[in-house]
Design a protein around this nucleic acid. Structure first.
Lengths: 295, 295
DNA sequence: AAAAAGTTGGAATATATTTTCTAATATCAC
DNA sequence: GTGATATTAGAAAATATATTCCAACTTTTT
């Protein structure tokens, strides 16, 4: 036990802060407890010490030690805080009740509150993901995975709004041990970079309206060099998608005239993981060499 | 004891109905208990029998009789229902539970087909989005929007897996006419770049396990320079989140040991759009009227 | 490499909580 | 009013839960 604060926190917020700030100095078992406590506050409020202990994979006495380390007399004293938090919350927040309240609030209140925007966003993105699941062809996926496998290097193109998707692909492909090169145009070298693409490579171009000329240029260069082109786009009716061997047509969510990237990112992730499972350096079970949860 | 149902209700909703329908037939003390139970579900979940008894002005044994009258073996059995309700409402536990169930379902089939991976991904991401909506605090959103407004420049930090999120924020913030600067470390200039941050700016740092030292360095520099720090992370238990004025704790979907970015991206978009609505150069409603979720 | 300090698991103990039981009290039918 | 029946309070018993303690183990220091 390193320090023994005279004043244990008396409200949840303070407690969470205190735990976070002392986390580094804690022993391994205490860390286990700390992260469980932060992640599952309601469990702490409602379950008994021994079931909490079981879920942390720790002895009940460890929980008591944890509470004492924070300055409480015992674990029950700490639980009291979590229980009070629940009691302080609105009387009966049943799910349907909350939905009703939300409707009420948002109909009358301003549409522009961050809270409402978030609600819209999650809602629309969920719909977009459902569409993605229905809309992407099994064969297209197989074809692209196969092309990626055969390719020496995967080039990624995407600027502005599409850039995060291309960057994510470049990053995660190289993490599953596929050579990947992001045509990022740093130092204005896009044309030098894309000159390198050959027939043994492939390029994945991500482009959404309004289509960027940089990405179109890359597509053109790919055509000239005989490099197979895969497009991730919102339509087939643009120069990039038209020349693509495979075009994934993604309908991303649109919230108040702002297009989201959720579905595109989800597709990108699918491509990478599928590739890793099928052909990744570590064989069938895919992600083995990278220890622990992938980053 | 009037009737003894063989089948006590197994969920809160059913229990409430049952209590209501049998209320008239109850003895006076039992009525006292009944109305307290209906009115204060959280108390029942969290407090001990004797304090509940005290608040109903009744003996503990009366609560037991009440529970038995409804068909339960004892009061604890009835409390379980109220406790489960609280646990179900909480993001994390039911979150992991749902994901686990989904996994189980999809485990049997062909794990490696891209089609299945896609299915996994969309499903898990949908769950993650639902929990993002429930889990992000209204106040935190408001606070951050406000900080962004007051800031001269918004600096963005995030490398590796977090890079797409930071890049998206930088891109889209400047599109709504907020000065935004991505600390991208091109040419190894991260420390030169972060030196520029001052107390009039803010920095939004995106970091996920395993936490990158580059981002931690930026956070440290922010602290030294008096620049307010906002963290988007998977836990408060890392150096960046610990020092943050506001920390959004995001539970992104994890599919087969691969973490997604969907929820984080969705939060990023929410921040930008909310900012644009409230303070953007185009004025309050410059971005158009709401037309419901996009198709 | 030995000693010291800190950490941990688990049994033993102390405490709290729930449940059962009984005598007393109220209610109702006649 | 009287007896039959149901209800209640409260103490006692049973059970569940929290806490303490110590020997074994790990890590750090010297």
């Amino acid at each position: 036990m390193k320090q023994m604060p005279q004043k244990p926190p008396t409200n949840l917020q303070a407690l969470r802060t205190e735990i976070a700030s002392r986390y580094e100095a804690m022993s391994p078992r205490l860390k286990q407890v700390a992260s469980y406590v932060l992640d599952n506050p309601n469990d702490i409020a409602v379950e008994t010490l021994s079931v909490i202990a079981g879920r942390c994979d720790v002895q009940p006495s460890t929980i008591v030690r944890f509470a004492k380390a924070l300055g409480y007399g015992g674990a029950s004293e700490m639980q009291r805080l979590f229980r009070d938090e629940i009691l302080a919350a609105s009387p009966s927040p049943s799910y349907s009740e909350r939905v009703r309240q939300f409707r009420e609030r948002s109909n009358s209140m301003d549409w522009f509150s961050p809270f409402n925007v978030m609600h819209d966003f999650t809602e629309s993105n969920i719909i977009a993901l459902e569409h993605l699941r229905e809309g992407v062809s099994k064969d297209d996926l197989e074809t692209v995975i196969d092309l990626m496998h055969k390719a020496h290097t995967v080039y990624l193109a995407g600027v502005r709004r599409s850039f995060p998707v291309a960057a994510y692909l470049a990053y995660s492909l190289s993490h599953v041990e596929k050579r990947a090169f992001l045509l990022d145009g740093v130092a204005g070298m896009t044309s030098e970079q894309s000159w390198m693409m050959g027939p043994e490579d492939i390029v994945i171009a991500v482009t959404f309206r309004p289509y960027a000329s940089e990405t179109a240029d890359v597509a053109e260069r790919a055509k000239a060099n005989g490099t197979p082109l895969i497009a991730i786009s919102d339509s087939r009716l643009n120069p990039v998608a038209r020349d693509a061997a495979v075009c994934f047509e993604i309908k991303d969510a649109e919230v108040r005239q702002f297009r989201s990237l959720t579905a595109s990112m989800c597709l990108a992730q699918t491509l990478v993981i599928s590739y890793a499972y099928r052909f990744g350096a570590n064989g069938g079970n895919g992600l083995g060499t990278h220890k622990g949860p992938a980053e």
